[in-house]
Design a protein around this nucleic acid. Structure first.
Length: 204
DNA sequence: CCACGGATTGGCT
DNA sequence: GCCAATCCGTGGA
């Protein structure tokens, strides 16, 4: 563990609150993955909220299936899905049992394990300035860089494999609210949140 | 710089 | 069979 990082792990009660509150408060928190050999860490800078009860773009909108069942559980677990025949995406499940809500981690600012992230993404440890900002600037890129796959589906975020470290809340005025990216349904919901002027977001 | 389309698995109708 | 909560390379302005 990097001694410069605060050690306080987010607990269950952080995740079981209302979707949009959790989504906004996830900004600035530090995502950590520790597989016993390498520790990856990154600051969450961009997220999107999904709510199957009113949101047609949410994977839970159709009801419970084998794929989305973890999203219907209590908050604080990881929902990983595979899409476009190529990419994994990571979500933080929120709320109470049965709600079907989660927050997609769209981008992080790399902190620890950057060389290995570069290796996972580009096949080499050394990267140029442009590639640095391209490491984890998208939901598929984050999973590729941190080696998050279907094996991590359903991981308990209050455990010690993948978890979040608490950080001070980002000021409301530093949070940009926009429509979500890459969806075809419920396109007008303003449920994308990112840190203003952060160079590691996927796009403006 | 922007627009477009191909890749490729698997979930659901 | 259709098409996706994406990414990347190509081609034109």
């Amino acid at each position: 563990m990097n001694p410069e990082l605060p050690h306080k792990k987010l607990e269950r009660q952080f995740y079981t609150r209302e979707l949009l509150t959790v989504a906004k408060e996830l900004l600035g928190k530090i995502l950590v993955k520790d597989d016993g050999k390498i520790i990856f860490s990154g600051k969450i800078v961009e997220v999107e909220a999904y709510d199957g009860s009113i949101d047609e773009a949410a994977h839970t909108y159709i009801g419970k299936t084998k794929r989305n069942e973890i999203m219907f559980g209590i908050g604080g677990f990881l929902y990983v899905y595979f899409t476009y025949g190529a990419h994994f995406c990571s979500n933080v499940v929120t709320g109470k049992e049965g709600e079907g809500t989660a927050v997609l981690i769209r981008a992080v600012e790399p902190l620890g394990g950057m060389k290995k992230m570069a290796h996972n993404r580009f096949g080499r440890n050394l990267i140029n300035e442009k590639e640095k900002y391209n490491l984890t600037s998208g939901p598929g890129k984050v999973c590729k860089a941190l080696s998050i796959t279907r094996d991590h589906y359903g991981i308990d975020l209050t455990g010690n494999k993948i978890f979040l470290l608490d950080q001070p809340e980002i000021n409301e005025e530093q949070i940009v609210i926009s429509k979500r990216i890459g969806i075809k349904k419920s396109v007008d919901l303003p449920w994308r949140f990112y840190i203003k002027d952060n160079p590691y977001i996927s796009r403006k």
